[in-house]
Each structure stands twice: as structure tokens, then as C-alpha cells.
Design a protein around this nucleic acid. Sequence first.
DNA 1: GTAAACTTTGCAACTGAGTTGCATAGGGTC
DNA 2: GACCCTATGCAACTCAGTTGCAAAGTTTAC
Lengths: 140, 140
Amino acid sequence: MNEQATHVEDILQKKGVKPTAVRMNVLNFLLDQEKAVSLKDIESVLSRMDRSSIFRTLKSFEEHKLIHSIDDGTGMTKYAVCAEGCNCELEDLHYHFYCVSCEKTFCLMDHPISTIELPKNFKMIHVNMVIKGLCDKCNK
Amino acid sequence: MNEQATHVEDILQKKGVKPTAVRMNVLNFLLDQEKAVSLKDIESVLSRMDRSSIFRTLKSFEEHKLIHSIDDGTGMTKYAVCAEGCNCELEDLHYHFYCVSCEKTFCLMDHPISTIELPKNFKMIHVNMVIKGLCDKCNK
DNA sequence: GTAAACTTTGCAACTGAGTTGCATAGGGTC
DNA sequence: GACCCTATGCAACTCAGTTGCAAAGTTTAC
Ligand SMILES: [Mn+2]
Ligand SMILES: [Mn+2]
Ligand SMILES: [Zn+2]
Ligand SMILES: [Zn+2]
């Protein structure tokens, strides 16, 4: 077993997910990305693995707070690995950026959601904040 | 023709949409709402009208900046009438609130999107900001 | 006024992401 | 090895959204 493999195995163990072949492959792929990816993205790379297995893997990862999902308005949910120490609580939430040109979705980890004033008695539990525009590479 | 009818007719005229029966009915219904509604919501009320006609009406309204759409994460796009003077530009964008209890989606018109600092060279064109939680009526 | 041209509408069929039931395969326990 | 529980693959299904097309309605041209 190579180093990479032990690495993802450790992560899965730590988050309470039994490390299976599918799960290790999916996590490995997710860790490689600089952008958030869709089920289809994963499917097309890990083509030997079944869509529903990958789907269930993603659900399980999300439940165990290993990844978070982003609804970027494209009609395909995107997934990205949570940052170190993330517990998917309010303080871990951040903006996401969808580039309308290259169609990549990014986590803006350095831009946490500042307190948003809500109408009286409204309570925030979660957010899905997506900014659409041009990323640095496409904004020429 | 009653007063309500002339009212929606005027609005449609002003926004450059030919006032037809379907369009006037849809706009009338939208104006009645305190929350954002889905195609299905409209369909179930204006049941004599066809889904695709309502769908195309909504697309047309959106293109003519009569309404804006909200992806609140429920899997069904919601629509709400734009405020007076709205041009769907950056300064018209506002937060939306989805109540996880009563499942209503609200426009937080009084909460415009403040300038969000983006990574260098990123350009914001649009946003879809959804806060999920409990509305005042459900937050007991 | 009538015919031609264009627009809107209703219907039905389709798309595609997501989801589920179920049988089989895999892994651990005794 | 027999037993048990979980993960996986496959196929079928769901459901919001979308499209092609013909009929109905409206506008324009003569
Ligand atoms: Mn993220
Ligand atoms: Mn709104
Ligand atoms: Zn880009
Ligand atoms: Zn509520």
C-alpha cells in the first residue's frame, strides 16, 4: 500500500468511515482537486465504479463531515473536501465562487460568512452562498 | 375588465411583455404572494393553464426583469416579483431566506448584498445567496 | 374584410441528475 | 467453513425542467 493510500485511509478512519476501495478512490480524487466537483466528474474519472456507489459514498462523506456540498446553480451539486478542523458549523461556512466562463466552482475559504443581520426572530442554521462571475484566469 | 386586470396589464406593457391571459394570470398570482413560489405552486393554482406555458411565461418574465429566480436548494426554482425600480443589477441583489420548518422562501429585500471581498482579479456578476434556518413564525 | 405572417398555447414526449430496491460480493467473527 | 453484516453494481425509477410540434389566437399586409 502506497503513502497516498495510507493517508486517505487514515482520514477515513479518523472521521468514522470504513475505508473501502470506492471510498478511498473517491476521497483521493476529491483531495486532488482545486475546484469543487460533481458526481458526474467523479464518475467519469473513476469509471470502473458505479454511479450509485459513488453517490452513496458522497452522502456518507457528507454525513461524516468529510466533505460539504455546494448548490452552485448549474443543476449539478458540487462537492469539496472540508478544511482541517471543519465541523460544518456556522463558523466554518464560506462563500463559493462559480466562474461563468471556465465553469469551475471554488471554495473561498478565506472569506468566511460574516454575521448577516436577519429580520427579527429569524434564526440562521445554514447557508448556501454562491457568487457568480469571472475567476482570475478568465477575467482578462 | 377589472382594476386588478388593468394593473397587471400595465405592468406587463411597461416591461415590454405582451399581456396575454396566461401572463396576466401568472403575474397576478405572483403579486399576491408574500413568499417566492415554484412553477409547481403556480401550476396547482392556475390548473387550467399548461405547465409549459407557465414555464415559458416565467422565463419570459425573468428575461424582462419582471421577476427573479432563487435557487433555494430544495430542487425547485422559486420566483418572486422584482421590487419597484429593480433592474436585476448587482445593487438590486439581496439575501433570500429558506425556512426549514415551514419551507417558505423569502426575499430579504431590506438586506442588500454588501460588497464581498473577492480574491484578486475575481469579478462578481451575480449572486445566489440563501440563508437557511427558522423564520419568525417557526422560531418558537 | 380576408389572407398571410407571426406569436402564444397545450399536449406529449423527452432529458438528466438524483435516488432506490434488490441481489450479489466482500470482510469480519466465531 | 458457516454466519452475519456492510458495501457494491445494476437496473429501474422519480421528478423538475425542457423541447418539438401542431392548433389556436393575434397582428399585419393587401
Ligand atoms: Mn466550500
Ligand atoms: Mn428575492
Ligand atoms: Zn474561470
Ligand atoms: Zn417558517
